[in-house]
Design a protein around this nucleic acid. Structure first.
Lengths: 191, 191, 191, 191
DNA sequence: TATGAATGAGGATTCATTCAT
DNA sequence: AATGAATGAATCCTCATTCAT
């Protein structure tokens, strides 16, 4: 009995996701250039050849992975409806989760930062990132305005930059970086 | 008649510098692993082989480059003997120059951040970078102690992280990043 | 539809053997260091890359080759279990076959002697060769002991050296070397 | 005052010899392929470029070296007038010196044996070797004839092969090869 | 004659990608 | 859809040789 088109479609989705999961894992352990297509295939439990039914190339895989990851991160980072106004608690949460996530999923963040330094990848992801991030940036700006900041847009950018700096250092030295103390300081400063 | 020792010395210095300049540019544009020795040679306008008269390996090149870069940056950052205590003016200078340099020498910073994000590359230079940076980190800690901070080491780390975040964003969006306003804010906060 | 495991197995065996054959020929004609992986691949009629599906490195290829060769030679030399004692007939056979083989399989012997003469290459395979040859050396020693030789170990070494000398000259001048007469003399002397 | 042609000639000879000496030393430590022209030049105390005033190529150097070495070895091996008949003492001396030389100048012998396995080098040296060796081979044949051997030419070839085998093994394992015992055995057998 | 910086062909090795089955 | 053997271009690196001085 031949499978229906829907069944095939589901199978494809499943395989695709399994490959992406494997790719994330392998890229996490070895970097993009050291990670071989072979090892990704083995981790995914399929043959090298089959991967090329799902992805045009190794680079294609990386890009798909990054785009998916951005969305994923955004979701966990700010599990709020973007149309609601940010309260002080949201910002506190933003700070806490922002730092905790680095410790929990370091590889996601390594990928995140590595986007910044790869102009070509950056170009691909930039638009999607901006689009996804916009509501949050606007929400933050609004928040700082409501706090009475003279230049709320500036504060938003400053806050974003500081968060990235903290996350970067936290990622580079998760063992000894004083994450908890930094959280308190950030909350005192921005909330 | 052979060239004199001095003539050879001049030739070597020139070639070496040309290679390092090219390496900086290429490593910054493409990342370490993607940057090929061939493309560096082509950028420097010399043959691949010649590079190995000056550097033991590609990795050696990165090392020398990072060391030179650190020294160079440190010089401009803090034109003082590292054994002298940092004054408030030094910190002001640190902030101002730190941000200006990103705009003036983007290659330096792209290389700097790209190394951060590639663990395997980071591993190559970590020791040398730490060694070069240590006196400044200690100087900063001492500065925060003299300011009466309860936890000067923490403040130093926080300050460093914030500076890196600012520099990263400044590098990514040099056109519209509010560099001047940020400088003022940082000075108010840390000096 | 993919090939079965067995089909792949057959393919691998075939390719592996073709590579080893080519390696024997090329290593014997040119010496280890002069023989390029490319020329071996060309002789085997395959791509350079494929060789690395079967051998870790050029050195690994030499090792595998030498091991296979030793086993092969030993087999023909002494079609007995090495744990059984050598009889006079075995030694006669050893001498006869030892000389005939030089004429039949000159590549084997050229490789064998060329390895001897290149200390760095010898170092690569020394251990494995000794291990493979040990039982035969011990068997020979035992044989000379049973013959009542005062110093059987010495005789074994002397016999081995003489055989190598004969084989070397036989290899260098297969046309006019008096192989048959030498056999008779050796048998008279050692059996 | 310009030097005379003869003076120039002498200088050239001197430099040439210095280079060959250096080459022998360097080839002895590292093998032909590992020994770089640069290291030979440094050992000889001259520049790489200058070497090419004296030798067409690195290979040319090796060949010159080998030819010189053959003559040298022959000289030491058989310090007799080739026209005189070999006495028993000469043969004893031949055996003793033949083995001692291997222990004293192992590298000479490694070169000697390596000639055998390099067909192209062999072709170059073969004629010279035969020519130089002929009187000795004839002398040996004559010696065995005078001893009453039925087939003196055969004995000469056998003797030569045995000597080469002994020398080969002695060279490969100078520490533990029972050189003295072998000498006695050879003398008993052939004198 | 003498130097050593510079070249470039060629070496081993890796790995994304293809393709016959 | 699935396999993995096979390819070959690309990588880093070495070193004999050349050449301007």
């Amino acid at each position: 009995m031949p499978r229906t088109k829907e069944q095939f479609e589901v199978m494809r989705k499943g395989s695709r996701q399994r490959i992406l999961d494997a790719a994330l894992e392998v890229f996490a352990k070895q970097r993009y250039h050291s990670a071989t297509v072979g090892s990704i295939a083995k981790t995914a439990g399929i043959s090298k050849g089959l991967m090329y039914n799902y992805f045009k190339s190794k680079e294609d895989m990386l890009n798909e992975l990054m785009i998916g990851m951005m969305e994923n991160l955004m979701c966990e980072f700010m599990p709020l409806k973007p149309d609601r106004k940010f309260t002080q608690d949201d910002i506190v949460n933003f700070i806490n989760v922002g730092i905790d996530l680095v410790l929990e999923k370091p590889y996601y963040w390594k990928l995140y930062f590595s986007v910044f330094v790869q102009p070509d990848v950056m170009a691909m992801v930039y638009d999607k990132m901006m689009e996804a991030g916009k509501p949050y940036m606007e929400g933050l700006t609004e928040y700082f305005r409501s706090k009475g900041e003279a230049n709320p847009e500036f504060m938003m950018r400053y806050f974003a930059a500081v968060m990235d700096g903290i996350q970067l250092h936290c990622m580079l030295d998760p063992k000894s970086f004083p994450a908890e103390t930094v959280k308190k300081l950030l909350i005192r400063q921005f909330v």
